[in-house]
Computed example of a mutant assay.
Amino acid sequence: MTASVAEPGTRRICQDTGLALVAGPVSSFRIARESYGALAPRPREASDDPANWSRYDTLGRTIYSSADRVTAFMELLASYRTDINAERRALQPAADAMGMSLDAYWADIVAEWDESGNMKASWLPRVFREGRALYTLEYPEGWWIDASATETIAAIHDLFSGPWPTRDGDSDKPLTLADLTGDDRILTTVIASAIREHVQLDDGTLPLGIQFLSKHGRPADGSGLCWAYWMRQVDSGLDEPATVIKTEPIVDNDPAYIAAQKFCKIKSR
């Protein structure tokens, strides 16, 4: 169906569902492997484990992008920070044996690895940059569901009754913003799937996807907004209306890339 034309950023409440909506089109940034491109995510299958999916994935294809470059890099680099922190914590017994604090022991190891040119510790390999590109996307006109709105949280309760599946089992607890933006992929993907499969808006259109705030916050020069876009047309065998309007290499002196590395306390060669 054809979306109602509205000024981008226009907000309203859907009269049929109660969901809070934000109008597109949206121009945003997405980092992806060049071998796949910006518009070719791996489709999710019914046999997959949703615990390994991204936050608002559903059956079919979903892509994610961010309103500003720093947030785009943060969304990608944060997982490397998690890996590094896990490696760091694993050294606690060795630090105890040496009679040192973990911070001091880790600092010594990082200094030694850096001096020898080792790619471990807080370093990202060069292939990280060389294998990816920063894409500017433009989505079609339509409405996004605002995951941060009070109205959306209330509407989800009204639209989908019964306990929600979570990684800890079924739950009757009221949903909160923390649930919608949290890391429980069993819960968030079920909510996304219910909206994608069962919601039609009051103008007869289907929501493009979900707008949400990055869990890494809002950088000084950006909004921290992100979008999960459901590729309904491609999943139905049609042409994709979203377009790539710019492709840029990831260079080591990109201010946004440098800022994200500082926030994540990692470096790149």
Rank of each mutant, 00 (worst) to 15 (best):
A6P: 00
S65F: 08
W113S: 08
L134G: 02
A51Q: 15
A259G: 04
R88E: 03
M231H: 03
M231L: 12
V110L: 07
S4I: 01
F29T: 01
A107M: 10
M1P: 02
P165D: 15
A32T: 05
G99T: 09
A259C: 10
A46Y: 13
R167Y: 04
G37W: 05
W144D: 02
S65Y: 01
S116C: 09
M98T: 07
A178M: 15
W106V: 11
P165I: 14
D108C: 08
S66H: 02
D170T: 02
S214L: 08
G18R: 09
L213H: 08
F160D: 00
Y64I: 01
A107L: 06
K265H: 03
P174S: 00
R61I: 00
S47M: 02
A20M: 10
K173Y: 13
W164I: 02
D96L: 15
A149P: 00
S47D: 03
D235G: 05
S27A: 04
G24N: 11
S116D: 08
L91P: 00
I191K: 13
D221F: 12
D235N: 05
S101P: 12
R69E: 11
L159C: 06
L21P: 02
R44C: 05
T247R: 14
A94P: 13
P249A: 04
R81Y: 12
A51V: 15
M231I: 04
I266G: 03
E141Q: 09
S66E: 04
L39F: 01
L19C: 06
I245K: 11
G117A: 10
N253E: 14
R132I: 05
R11T: 05
G237D: 15
A78S: 14
F29Y: 01
I245Q: 07
W164M: 14
R269Y: 08
T150L: 13
A38H: 10
G18Q: 12
K246I: 03
T247W: 10
L59N: 05
D202V: 06
T17H: 13
A256S: 15
S148V: 01
D146I: 11
A23G: 13
W164S: 03
S27P: 07
R61S: 04
A192Q: 12
P165V: 14
Q200M: 09
A194E: 07
K120A: 14
T205V: 03
T152F: 05
A104V: 15
G99R: 11
R33I: 04
V190W: 14
K246A: 15
A147V: 07
